[in-house]
């Protein structure tokens, strides 16, 4: 009986306790909303400040490590050379990405329409993907006269595989019952593709696009490095090489910053596209309302 004696006569969970809990949730949510932007900003500012201090305190010469201020200054001063170079790199990247999208999706459709086509050509796609572009690029530059086209081919080879692989997977992962329904309603091949397979593949394709966006930039930059400073190419990678030869380290950093900036912009655009196309129906993009 002693056990029962220790217990209070009743335990009350009153309304007010729950309200306090909800209040805490709401506060945490508000804090998170601010932190989402404030935290990364603070980290970036601290990093830049730390970098600046390291350079200043250790008297590191600018041809070894320029201070962030000097990099920014160079960015403004050399804008006339750097900006056109950025446009060149951006152009190659976007063209390669477009060709990768068209080629990747077209091949994926071909693969799902014909098993034999997939059996015959898929190994080539894999070989293209696993062979490091740096080792193939010199050959491409030997055989292709037009340098822009050669750059494009390099960037395309790197970028197209994720689109091909993801889209193929997506086209094949249409719901089985919906496929049966298409058969029952005697849908044509084209209708099946248009109304069932392509929409089913969209989330997969967009996932591939996000990867391919970054890869096409990498492809474009790598190809430019391989092409070297000998030709007419004048993209950002060319500027980095050129500045390196002249020990113009601040300009190297400025060009590097622009490449990173391009990468971030491409990522943001593909992410926004992903949200725009999927937020109404796909789990990955739907906000959960708790």
């Amino acid at each position: 009986m002693s056990l029962a004696d220790d217990r209070p006569s009743e335990t009350v969970i009153d309304g007010a306790a729950f309200d306090a809990e909800e209040e805490r949730h709401a506060r945490a949510k508000r804090l998170e909303a601010v932190g989402k932007w404030a935290l990364p900003t603070i980290v970036v500012v601290l990093t830049l400040y730390g970098w600046d201090r390291v350079v200043a305190i250790n008297h590191i010469p600018h041809y070894i490590l320029p201070s962030p201020g000097l990099v920014a200054e160079t960015l403004v001063k050399d804008w006339g050379t750097l900006f056109p170079s950025m446009l060149v790199t951006l152009k190659i990247t976007l063209m390669a990405l477009s060709v990768a999208v068209i080629g990747g999706v077209a091949l994926a459709i071909l693969f799902t329409q014909s098993k034999f086509a997939e059996m015959a050509f898929f190994p080539y796609a894999v070989i293209l993907q696993v062979t490091p572009i740096v080792s193939v690029a010199p050959l491409i530059f030997i055989y292709v006269d037009n340098r822009i086209v050669a750059l494009l081919i390099c960037a395309w080879v790197v970028a197209f595989f994720p689109i091909l692989a993801n889209t193929t997977l997506g086209l094949k992962s249409a719901d089985h019952n919906l496929r049966d329904l298409m058969t029952i309603y005697r849908a044509s091949r084209w209708q099946r593709l248009r109304y069932l397979q392509l929409p089913s593949a969209l989330p997969y394709f967009l996932g591939g696009l996000r990867i391919a966006g970054g890869l096409s930039l990498i492809g474009a930059v790598v190809a430019e490095y391989v092409a070297g400073t000998g030709g007419i190419g004048s993209g950002l990678a060319f500027r980095i090489l050129e500045a390196g030869y002249r020990l113009n380290i601040p300009r190297m950093f400025a060009a590097l910053f622009l490449i990173a900036f391009l990468g971030v912009v491409i990522f943001m655009v593909t992410t926004a596209l992903n949200w725009f196309l999927l937020h109404k129906w796909h789990e990955s993009a739907v906000k959960r309302d708790v």
Partner: peptide
Amino acid sequence: TLMPWATVLQNVWLPFRLR
């Protein structure tokens, strides 16, 4: 077995649409 990317109206439209 609904198409998640389509509205209720579009889903019910499917048999007609295929014709």
